[in-house]
Design a protein around this nucleic acid. Sequence first.
DNA 1: AGTATTTGACCGCC
DNA 2: GGCGGTCAAATACT
Length: 367
Amino acid sequence: MASACVYEEKTLIHELTQGLQLAESLRVNLHSPETREFLIQKILSIYDNALLVLQSGVYAGQPREPESSVSFRSPGSEEFEFDRPFSGQQGQNVTSKKRKGSMTLEDHVIICSGNRLEDNIDDGYNWRKYGQKDILGAKFPRSYYKCSYCNSQKCFAKKQVQRKDEDSTVFDIAYKGKHTCILGVQSASPPLSPSPQNHEITPTFHQLSPPNPGEMLSNLRANLRVNTSDLGGYTDTVPSSFSFPSTSSGLMEDHHQFHFPNHCDDELWQVYSQAVISPATPESNFFTEWGSPPSLDFPANLEPLISPATTPESNFYNSLRVYSPPFISPATSESNIFTEWGSSSSLDLLTGPADVDSDFEFMNSLF
DNA sequence: AGTATTTGACCGCC
DNA sequence: GGCGGTCAAATACT
């Protein structure tokens, strides 16, 4: 734990230092709306990351008591279990005294979705709603979803979606169980470049091994689509759906945050998505071996820049930042940014505005 | 007609 | 007994 704390401290310092630099850049670039917005988002993300590190308790040396539904556990903790179907549907926890359905295998995601409806939150999997419940003390009901392939493929992945009281544009999504379906994964990741391992989530502890970065981004590429059909109206329903692997594995509880700046109200072709995933387990040091950015086969119009976002010595998490020019070939009418990651990765993804080449170069220079 | 969603009832944990 | 999670019949949608 001591060494972990050192790493976390370095991560914090790195993040905050970067935030400082970005704030400085912001001051210099106040005149450029796009750059300004980008920098603000980056700074906010950095603060989010830093807070997550602090809140996780590992930095402070003492595990945080799980607050409400967000908690972090390591593979070594007792509550870490594998390959147990979610909920009491089968097998009903013989030993656990916990409330039915309160299994700890969860990924928690907080989504700032602008004005999107929860229906529009597309994480790449196919879900069927099977219940809705008013929760005591919550302003909005909680929706319960299960994988559409729960019957045909015995896939017991589930998720709960709850709109936040404080901010109705924010959804707290709890993923439980893991996808064992093939179709679900395939639909989530259309195989542009077929790679069998991309379409299967192996329900074993091996999921904690680092994903192949190239693979990861290949999936990302395969699912980068820009919605062109819904952008016509300056409506408040921004069509920037996104995807994330629902349950990286269900092996640990992670806390991810997604921010969806709602810019389409103002600028038609500006599609801006940013995802920040911050694994919380101190053991997430699987990616530290990424010495250099993976070689990627991105189409010319995507040409992302990839860089390790944290210092190599940081084992708390690593991020991969992907910047892509704004006009990702709109082959389909959906925006679907999908990534696949292990439990301990972090991925920043940003699709920039259309006419900001100079800003883009500037952003590139930041990393 | 087949599929998805809604919603009241039920179950089990606390 | 209260509450959260799930089931399943009814309903809506395609």
